[in-house]
Design a protein around this nucleic acid. Sequence first.
DNA 1: AACAATTATTTGCAAATTGCAAGTAATTGC
DNA 2: GCAATTACTTGCAATTTGCAAATAATTGTT
Lengths: 150, 150
Amino acid sequence: MEQNLRELFQVFSRRFGFLNKDCCQACGHNISLVQSHILYEVEHQYQPSIQQVAESLGTDITTFSRQVQSLIKLNLISKKPDPKDRRISILSLTEEGKEVAENINQQMNQYLDDVFSNMSQEEKEMVIRSIQLLNKSMQKTTKCCTTPLG
Amino acid sequence: MEQNLRELFQVFSRRFGFLNKDCCQACGHNISLVQSHILYEVEHQYQPSIQQVAESLGTDITTFSRQVQSLIKLNLISKKPDPKDRRISILSLTEEGKEVAENINQQMNQYLDDVFSNMSQEEKEMVIRSIQLLNKSMQKTTKCCTTPLG
DNA sequence: AACAATTATTTGCAAATTGCAAGTAATTGC
DNA sequence: GCAATTACTTGCAATTTGCAAATAATTGTT
């Protein structure tokens, strides 16, 4: 029972990574895993700048700048100057980008439902509470697990 | 409360990824995240072949072959032909590789302890049980989350 | 035993991804 | 009004990637 903590988490996050990879390939748009993460983050932040998203994802900003360019070419995200500070580019999903993100999201949730189908209702609730707890706890721990933006 | 399942997991795995990245940089050997994962996997499998580890990590085998080469140059892993089938190369950690892996492992566990320090003993136990449950459940779900080797 | 088929791994190459250094453009502070 | 800062972009040059093809060892077939 007293399994190494790290092992437990390592296995879990590896599996979740595979799921993520599968889903973004399955969505028909031939999106890379990195691109999928970008779409996710742009969708979930409020009027994010390039800098903000890059930091959230822990990517070098010059690399990220180019990733944004390629997603714009694919017509999945768009970039508009912030009217209040024209140095800043605000990112958003295009209609097509929203569709792709929604597609991925649905697949992920479907897979996750599948995973939870092996559990009782009580177990499922416990697991959800646990992940919520972990997220909160990791956010508190300033030493690690977060980027400057949290 | 009824947060999107995927969101919950996405945030968690992102955070865990940062932790992983931090740890392998902090270990003094300037190991990349990919290299850290390879060390972990080689250590945890029994006499793994190149093919096996590549599959576990979901990496293309040609790419992986080269990653192995660079880790051999760094004197962190070694490669010996399987006496029963000399096509197969069996991977193992060198003494130095073991040290690096142990170093990373300790750091990870230390960070994780830190995360758990924000919880009560009951909460901690619940979280551990939950992750164990998830791992089992993801393994059962053949549709996703695993490579051919599980 | 001979030789096609399979399996494990390695290279050639060309494309994609990365990050540092240096650049531009807009804003802030003194 | 001009130096300092901030947000972002480009020029490289190095690394990483994966497909196609090669090599080497083993297995199956006759």
